[in-house]
Design a protein around this nucleic acid. Structure first.
Lengths: 199, 199, 199, 199
DNA sequence: AGTTAATCGAGACGGTACGTCTGGTCTTAAG
DNA sequence: CTTAAGACCAGACGTACCGTCTCGATTAACT
């Protein structure tokens, strides 16, 4: 493969990575600082030092650029711990997510979702590039819990993931109260433990 | 003062309600049909037959108009059933909400949330005018459940409401899968019952 | 008529003449100073203090604006003298035209013709708004000359106008040598007198 | 050195004339077909199969390329007939010019002149490469006419050339009426014969 | 019944971002 | 060293909204 790859080097001037990286970096910073407002192609161009046309060469529109910036810079930061207990892993991961989403990242995500409401391609990209992969990871943890007997074996994983992570996104997007790790911990306890009296 | 206010019908031509109503109706229809894209002051004016200036006389900006349209036309449609079982009431209400939000209303809400991301006043209005009141209603049902012994007495109501309704909003805003009453029913079962084996 | 005119006052905010005038003035100045290069919608907007959108409200594109500026500001400056001799009138008018076209006006006209080469509507507007009316004026003077016996009665007026004014435009557009009143005078003498020996 | 230079075929790949020729041909065709609009470096590159950079290696800018294309492909097509009568030669040549300029060539010339208005080098090149040489040829014919006594001996040749050819260029550039050989013939008759009654 | 002050439709106006299209420069791989 | 390919900076184009503003026309309450 490496052979075919080295051979198939295209003809013209190769794409200078610095430009692309600078653009994505600038895009991300703008989203962090100002959300969707202020996230202007012009602003990205100015801050990155690139030309507007260079941006449009690589991304078809604002939404695509925003997604790309997010995925390149911010997305891959939260992994799952792996201990003996799947439930404990899940809970601690939710708390970390809540912590991170409570900061800048939450602003970016909410901006992306907002953009997605009026731009189907952005939504699609967000789902395929971020949401669905992370849901799959979560399902694996759940499967581990079922296998170990920590979790019931009749769970609907999609419903469970919605129940555990849905509220977190909800609090990002509809911030009726702050998003804190403590809250996320209590959320995990409630959902895992159920709401009925113990007996 | 309140007297003088109620009495002292101001001079000049009073505001004809038809205009306001036509505007709100048009606003709502546009949101239903096209979401935030296509929801243009101009489009609302054209469809309603009103003048742009008439819109701006009564609402300061796009977001405020959108909220107003939503609250006036769509918001008050889903009440809580009251039966012997608080859990059953909650579950059936969630299923109804899921059904309604799965249609046009969901599109409107997602548009409003999206608008809210770049417009704090819209967000505030959505919270105060819709989200928080409905959360309070839900908490009342929960309190009934605690009183009747159906629910544990150590619940954090805010967390519970997040756990039950958060996922519904999440599925509106991040539509990775369709929002159906069946799904909402399963969600209720999982959350109320907990995820651990029965033992 | 004045009645119908006063009655037919349209509904909305009337068009403020200052804006339109400022735009046309700025357009003309830019054409004078820099020709077609530098004649940018943005530059016109900046110099006039108007918004780009205000320009596009009244003129569909660059060419239309250029023509409008020319016709409004510069076009109507050269009238025909009327004396006993049509030939003398013609000659002196040609000399005046040469003098004026030798300055800024010539630069504007050449810019307009250039623009017209790639924009049929601009060309059409230039013809209808400037070229043809002025040709008609010239033909009237010629007719006077024929009536008085100064000129032959078998002249093809269109050909004559081309012969007298064509060279002037030619020297504007293809400036192989400067355009001066003296030259225009000699041109008139040659054409009126013919090129053959006197006998 | 000069020896080695003439002998020593420079290193590297020799310049294939086909490329240059293909470029000029494509440039000319585009000018013929669409005038200045559509005459894009990119369009020339695409049609000729050459790369944009190859064009810019040989010509500094759009105008230079246009001129080059014109001179290489279209310019040298109209010679002067030589008979006993200089006036007849002149007239028949004018008619031929009018015929040719009335077709594609006219469109090219007008495009070049237009380009020249905003690009002094193009103008210079057009003058030096085409206009002035042709004027010189015309003057020689005039001189023949003076020598033979057909023409007055006090003529200002520059004025006469302007009078005879100026109108033709004028009709190309300001096409208020079609450019036909008949018209050119009448033009010649009027100018040579003068406009005054015969007496 | 006339005055008065507000509503309402219409639309001009200054702004700002969008996405597209050129121009001209520069950088690479292949020949 | 030439050629094809194409990345890159720069900047104008015309479009679409926004929110403000200025009009004339209308209309109900107050005088």
């Amino acid at each position: 493969m490496s052979i075919s790859k080295s051979t198939a080097r295209r003809r013209g001037r190769p794409q200078g990575d610095e430009v692309k990286i600078a653009i994505l970096k600038a895009a991300n910073e703008l989203l962090e600082e100002q959300g969707l407002a202020g996230f202007t192609i012009d602003a990205v161009a100015t801050r990155s030092g690139a030309a507007r046309s260079s941006i449009y060469r690589w991304w078809p529109n604002r939404g695509a650029l925003a997604i790309a910036g997010f995925l390149a810079e911010t997305a891959q930061k939260i992994g799952y711990p792996v201990t003996a207990s799947a439930i404990a892993d899940m809970k601690s991961q939710m708390m970390r997510v809540a912590e991170v989403y409570g900061q800048k990242v939450g602003r970016i995500i909410s901006a992306l979702v907002a953009q997605g409401q009026s731009d189907p391609e952005t939504l699609r990209a967000l789902l395929d590039g971020y949401v669905l992969p992370r849901r799959d990871e979560a399902k694996k943890v759940l499967a581990r819990g079922v296998a170990s007997g920590e979790l019931r074996d009749d769970l609907d994983f999609d419903v469970v993931v919605d129940a555990l992570y849905g509220p977190i996104w909800y609090r990002i997007l509809v911030p009726h109260a702050p998003l804190t790790p403590e809250w996320a911990g209590r959320l995990a306890d409630h959902v895992f433990g159920g709401l009925r009296p113990l007996r």
